[in-house]
Write a protein that binds this DNA or RNA. Structure first.
Lengths: 345, 345
DNA sequence: TTTTTTTACGCAAACGTTACCGATAACGAT
DNA sequence: ATCGTTATCGGTAACGTTTGCGTAAAAAAA
């Protein structure tokens, strides 16, 4: 089952020239006569010559491919990011090799080894929920592998990163609820390991404080796997409702958590927003079609993918070692639906 | 910005042996003494040796990577498929390189060239909506590149393919509507070029015929870009409602068309299913949270990705040319929601 | 002891490409 | 006629790895 491509040698043989001449002719070198060039070009065309990228990679010691590690491909937010990544990579002639961590630290390490062993020129990573150290990344990074974080970052590594203004997004969401009359706003959020969790919680808390509302820890529920297991969300909601003071609104800090909350609340027969309001981080394109239409904080996922890839390729192609690392912050957007309509007394 | 990995030469130099000895020792060859092997293994471990996959690829003339072409990554159905593809590829040590056609024939050709020039060992493809010939695939296929079609197939190429039973899915959907009392069932569907379109339409028509209902061409609306542009869907719905006999139900044959229809109907202020019922092909995981909860035909996308990859790798790794090609057909599932509740007189 | 076999390793070519270093010829200048 | 230029091309090493062939030394057989 092989697939014999024509090589530079075939052209050389066909024309009775040497391989070096062919190589130079194809690269339009000044030391090759115009006639020879034309001859070579024609022959290459005829034999349908395509340079072998693997041989080039071996020679140039670069693969022109970048690795991407995300927790899950089949997730609106991440697939939109990958779309952005692919678009930039395609424009610049790079491969995108994708691996999933499934929110597992162990799997993330294996992905990393796999991608490194495939000699990618650089890495884009949004760490798993279980990841709380940088040891696995550090060794590769120290040996010169360019790495760019997106969405979820880690401290301690000198790299570019692209995130959304999570603080601001959460602040917007919480403030919106407060302005609409809600006073007992609970938060259902991800693992406390994740950078995004703390940034979003900080925004949530600040909005409460700025509006003279108390921050209650019992109103903050963490879902370690971010709603990947539905029961997790169900439990979190249950815990909120078994308290003396029940919340009148929920702020869910991720896509899966938002839909999980909605499902749980629907199943409990609660009317949204009459019984309880809901605002969530979400990148689904059908938020407005939900029952009720969901107020969401939407992240510029596509742009995030583009920005991260741009930074990575910039670093890969830079002649001299990059010393100044950039933290690019994108702005999320509040899209108002019916799930957070003004509270009726 | 390079990244100096240790090679077999470094080990050879460190141990005062030849590269061939190292190579053989690492591959546990019988012609290397146990002591030397141990020495080499230890040294390799110490220097953190990893075989260079590019050099191997050049030697073995295989890249251990497969190409995937889909129209759009950021689409539930396709991202679930890619999830399946990645899972099998990862298990078997292959890279997955992804390219998007954005439903453009021209772009599909460029993707194809790109992937071929990156010397993938095989190709998984779901053709674009604009694609209605196999010329671009044929030359590669003839030169020995294994290709497996999934979801959307083309005639004329001797390959494996994995599809869902589109006829059956559409039949189920239509029959379900008929059983619930609907008699004027319209279909909003994709480009007539696509295999899935015709298969699904055939199922729709057969269900009508089997239940003694007329098949009306005016009730069949094609959306060339499958709902990628919203206005397309809006127009299609408009056309249905400007007819003398208006439909009492709509069958939408894709994910984007379903949500597009729902959006259009909502905007028109129509009540579903009272004014008009809706059933759609969709792989969203929040169909039950929609307003109203959507009756859908769900395709086993993850399994489709797995099956297609399995067939492809099987062919890639086969010693002798594969002659028997398989058409694997997976079964879709009808998930009943409120958007098609029994018609009240 | 001599011959044969076995063991254990090195040499060099090959995969496809590029780039350094020469080589050859034509040509004008000296 | 000799030399230096210039133009145009070839030889070969190198990227990292595997592998067929060769061979020295050691072991076994004669």
């Amino acid at each position: 089952m092989k697939f014999e491509a024509t090589t530079i040698k075939d052209i050389a043989k066909a024309l009775g020239l040497s391989t070096s001449t062919i190589s130079r002719a194809l690269r339009d070198s000044y030391e090759i006569s115009e006639e020879t060039k034309k001859l070579v070009l024609e022959c290459a065309e005829k034999l349908n010559y395509r340079p072998n990228p693997i041989a080039l990679s071996l020679k140039e010691r670069r693969s022109r491919s970048i690795g991407v590690i995300v927790c899950e491909i089949a997730n609106n937010f991440f697939s939109q990011i990958i779309n952005g990544i692919e678009s930039v990579a395609y424009e610049r002639g790079y491969n995108v090799i994708i691996a999933q961590s499934h929110e597992s630290y162990e799997r993330e390490i294996m992905d990393l080894q796999f991608l490194a062993s495939r000699s990618v020129d650089g890495l884009l990573i949004s760490v798993s929920t279980e990841t709380n150290d940088i040891n696995h990344l550090k060794s590769l990074h120290d040996r010169g592998l360019p790495i760019v974080f997106f969405d979820r970052t880690l401290e301690g590594l000198n790299t570019h990163s692209v995130i959304v203004d999570n603080f601001n997004g959460a602040y917007l969401a919480t403030e919106h609820l407060i302005k609409n009359g809600y006073k007992n706003i609970a938060a259902i959020t991800n693992s406390e390991f994740l950078s995004i969790t703390n940034e979003r919680l900080a925004g949530y808390k600040q909005a409460l404080i700025d509006n003279n509302l108390p921050v209650k820890n019992s109103f903050i529920q963490h879902c370690f796997y971010g709603g990947m297991v539905f029961s997790e969300v169900e439990e979190a909601v249950n815990k909120l409702f078994t308290q003396k003071q029940k919340p009148d609104a929920i702020f869910a800090t991720s896509d899966k958590l938002s839909s999980g909350c909605l499902k749980t609340l629907n199943r409990r027969g609660l009317s949204i927003p009459n019984d309880i309001a809901l605002v969530g981080f979400s990148n689904t394109d059908i938020a407005e079609l939900l029952k009720p239409s969901l107020t969401v904080i939407r992240q510029p996922a596509y742009e995030m993918g583009r920005a991260a890839t741009d930074l990575l390729l910039q670093q890969i192609e830079s002649k001299r070692p990059v010393k100044d690392f950039e933290k690019r912050v994108l702005l999320p957007e509040l899209i108002i639906g019916d799930s957070s309509s003004p509270l009726k007394k």
